[in-house]
Computed example of a mutant assay.
Amino acid sequence: MYEPNVVGDWQEYDGHAGLRVRVHRLEPAEPPRGRDDAAEGLTYFRIRVTVENRGTRSFGVHLEDGQIDVRIGPDGEGAFVDWRNSQFIEGYDVYPLRRVTAVLYAAGPESSLSQVDVQVQLRVDDEWTDRRMWTGGIGAHEESVAAGAACAGAQGGLVHQISNFLRDQAEPGTAG
């Protein structure tokens, strides 16, 4: 079964040696050029998607609108994505030991932002990669929950479950 990444994790692509991507800095933020009227009453947040080349050759990378899908809340409803204020990666050559970052502004009801899923599908050298998913939340703080502690309510529940699962898998001597 395919397991989602936690926001902040790097995901490497098998078909493109040294190329990896991550979704990170999922945080509340206002867009730089003002709010879109369609987002009236919604809470804005920012997502950064970074592509890094640790290989020996350059890759032509595309990460544009339609290649990033943002879902929020327990039902996975689509977030409002502010395409006008977002900054994408459009045909950029990522040389070895270099990075490039896309910044996406989205919005949704504040009550749904404790669970945010981001799905990314890169186009590398005019070939589509497999889709990858990251999960996280706004206002969910893993540091404040002790390992193995039960999560009360929906506040960060999925994030805590994934973090605990990954922590259990990484600990030496854990049965598995």
Rank of each mutant, 00 (worst) to 15 (best):
L122R: 02
G173V: 00
E127S: 11
D65C: 09
A140H: 07
R22Q: 14
D65L: 12
Q11Y: 13
D69A: 13
G108L: 01
G176C: 04
Y44C: 10
Q169C: 05
G137L: 07
D36K: 00
G15T: 08
D93E: 07
E27P: 10
Q119M: 06
A152V: 09
G73A: 12
Q121D: 00
V103Q: 08
A107H: 02
G76A: 06
W128N: 12
G76I: 05
S114I: 00
V21G: 03
A38N: 09
Q121S: 06
T101E: 07
I89V: 10
A102N: 03
G157I: 04
D125P: 08
G41T: 05
V51L: 09
E90M: 02
N85I: 06
E40A: 13
H16P: 03
E127R: 14
V23F: 02
Q155I: 02
R25P: 09
W10T: 08
E142Q: 13
I47S: 10
G108I: 02
Y105P: 04
R54K: 15
R84F: 10
F165M: 05
F59A: 11
D82S: 07
A150P: 09
G148E: 01
P74L: 14
P4V: 02
L113P: 07
E142C: 13
H141V: 13
L42Q: 11
R131W: 07
E52G: 11
I47T: 15
G15K: 09
Y2V: 06
S163C: 04
V145G: 01
A154Q: 11
V118C: 04
V103C: 01
G173C: 00
V70M: 03
E127V: 08
F45N: 09
E110Y: 04
E52H: 15
R71L: 14
E64V: 14
L19S: 10
R25Y: 13
N85M: 07
A152E: 12
I162Y: 04
G108S: 02
E127A: 12
G60K: 13
E90W: 02
R84W: 08
G137I: 10
H160V: 02
R20S: 14
M1Q: 08
Y92Q: 04
Y2H: 08
E110K: 12
G157Y: 08
V7D: 06
R25A: 15
L19V: 13
S86P: 08
P109Y: 00
R131K: 12
R71P: 10
S112Y: 05
I138P: 12
A38R: 13
R25N: 15
L26D: 09
V120A: 03
E171V: 04
N53G: 10
S111Y: 03
E90K: 06
H24M: 11
V94G: 02
S111D: 13
G136Q: 11
Y44H: 08
R46Y: 06
